[in-house]
Design a protein around this nucleic acid. Structure first.
Lengths: 141, 141
DNA sequence: GTGATATATTTAGCCTGCTAAACAATTTAA
DNA sequence: TTAAATTGTTTAGCAGGCTAAATATATCAC
């Protein structure tokens, strides 16, 4: 019986995360963004001019993924790249005006999505949920 | 303060699901499988000979995604496709012996991953977690 | 039976992701 | 100072995932 509960949890988690991704992705399309790109932009809104290596660490993904994302975002005019003057290996990423303007609408979509997701879940439950997820995360080393 | 908790939950969820996927994916590579393919095979282990349309509904993804996955799995010799005799539009998917043999090792990896993830989380907490995730899922319509 | 509509799959072209390997610039060490 | 090692980025090629449009077959209506 216990095993069944666990199975459902993993299944549920996968199902929920896929659904969340799709749902959020759909909203972002209104801004001509793909899911994940908002994350990269978010880092830049905290302060741009950081390197691709730093982005790769912050977003927790591999350098080639950053290369691709940056290429796409640059192509759509949200960011631009500038070679570092001191170290010619390094690319520094900056926001364009168009990229800066996205901060508010993305934030709004994010909050709306959040509200929708957590509707009718109490503060206590949210805190517990957070604790359990942190536990699970640390379980994966 | 409450808003902060919510933000962390969404962030945590994304982070955890990415980590889970990576972790599980890594284990599956030992079997020469990619994450997601186990899901398709799982459906076939329940009974093969179903159509791509049915797979698409069960896996909750679009038909072109199934086309690609099926192509890759066929190429690696885990499944084969057969055109339906009654309806020439339909492709029916069957397991090869090689595909059937994967059931046990995949199941074992899945269970191991499950245990690792839910370590030190009590039955009560698991039940609550399940309830909350079901709630969140239904919140997304 | 022919024409219009519906259904199942594929293709093309994007996206985030990955790994392995190439490439370029900088540091380190002999 | 020159060779070797390290660091940051890119390329190539693969995966799952998507949408829009093409294709092929079936069915339905006249």
């Amino acid at each position: 019986m216990e095993i069944n509960v666990d199975c459902e949890i993993r299944e549920l988690f996968d199902k929920l995360s896929a659904k969340m991704r799709r749902d959020y992705s759909e909203s972002l399309r209104e801004l001509n963004l793909y899911v994940g790109q908002d994350n990269l932009l978010y880092r830049l809104w905290l302060g741009d001019g950081i390197t691709q290596m730093q982005l790769s660490e912050h977003l927790n993904c591999e350098p080639p993924t950053i290369t691709n994302m940056v290429k796409s975002l640059e192509h759509n005019g949200f960011i631009y790249r500038k070679r570092d003057e001191k170290d010619a290996r390094v690319m520094r990423i900056f926001l364009t005006d168009k990229g800066k303007e996205l901060q508010e609408p993305v934030d709004s979509i994010w909050k709306k999505h959040q509200e929708k997701l957590l509707k009718s879940i109490s503060t206590d439950e949210r805190l517990l949920l957070r604790r359990l997820m942190k536990q699970m995360e640390s379980n994966l080393f």
